[in-house]
Simulated scan of single mutants.
Amino acid sequence: MTDDLVERVRAGNEHAFRILIETHKDTVFRTVYSVLRHQKDAEDATQEVFIKIYTSLPQYKNQGFKTWMTRIAVNHAIDMKRKRDRNKEESHEEQPKETHLGQAEDVEALFFRNERRKLVLQKLDDLPAGYREVVQDYYINEKTHQQIAEEQQIQVKSVEVKLYRARNWMKKHWKEEDFS
């Protein structure tokens, strides 16, 4: 049924796209909400995801619409979350330093956050060399899979595999206590 709807949307049938949205809006919303954890942001992201789906339909290869759609939703939500976090960080940096110096809790929190960041960067050195660069690029430098693949002259799938294996390595070798 979904593939039939997709073909009708590709043919320019707007009503078919409305049906497609109605059929999948809850799934997309739950997906983006699970990343963003904010009702209004998730509602906005859901609308944006359907716009991306519509514009990306010509590239869709009829290989599992729900999986394809969910991947678009997850990637968009992660991008929104990064942007939101970056904006919070920038607005935090723009505040005058004197306002923070008088507040012992803020100074202490900033100190511990910087210490944790140093610890994480040190722990990255423990990663096997094949994983270290891709983890650094993806999580620290916030590069996309595509950017990493182009820079390392490898396939995007190879980047995904390296990240997957690096996460498994970290789960196996690192403990939460190591970072507290």
Rank of each mutant, 00 (worst) to 15 (best):
M1A: 09
T2M: 08
D3F: 02
D4L: 07
D4E: 09
L5Y: 10
R8Q: 08
V9S: 03
V9K: 02
V9W: 04
R10D: 02
A11Q: 08
H15I: 07
F17M: 05
H24S: 04
T27W: 15
V28T: 02
R30Q: 10
V32A: 05
S34D: 09
L36R: 04
L36E: 06
H38R: 07
H38N: 14
Q39P: 00
D41Q: 13
A42S: 12
D44A: 06
D44H: 06
A45Q: 06
T46D: 12
Q47M: 04
V49F: 04
V49I: 01
V49W: 03
F50R: 03
K52C: 08
K52G: 00
T55C: 07
T55Q: 12
Q59D: 11
N62D: 10
Q63N: 09
G64A: 02
F65D: 08
K66E: 06
W68R: 03
W68V: 03
W68M: 05
M69L: 14
T70P: 00
A73N: 10
N75H: 11
H76T: 06
A77M: 12
I78V: 11
D79I: 03
D79T: 03
R82K: 11
K83M: 11
D85T: 08
E89Q: 10
E90M: 12
S91E: 14
E93G: 00
E93W: 06
K97G: 00
K97L: 15
T99N: 01
H100S: 03
L101T: 03
L101H: 07
Q103K: 14
Q103L: 15
A104V: 13
E105Q: 12
D106R: 05
L110R: 09
L110H: 10
F112T: 12
F112P: 04
R113V: 09
N114P: 00
N114C: 04
V120L: 13
L124H: 09
D125A: 09
P128K: 14
P128G: 08
A129N: 11
A129G: 01
G130S: 09
E133M: 05
E133Q: 13
D137I: 06
D137C: 13
I140N: 02
I140F: 11
N141R: 14
E142N: 15
E142T: 13
E142G: 04
I148P: 06
Q153E: 08
V161G: 14
K162D: 05
K162S: 10
K162W: 05
L163E: 11
R165C: 07
R167K: 15
R167S: 06
M170G: 03
M170Q: 07
K171Y: 06
K172V: 00
W174V: 03
K175I: 01
E176I: 09
E177R: 13
E177V: 13
F179K: 05
S180C: 12
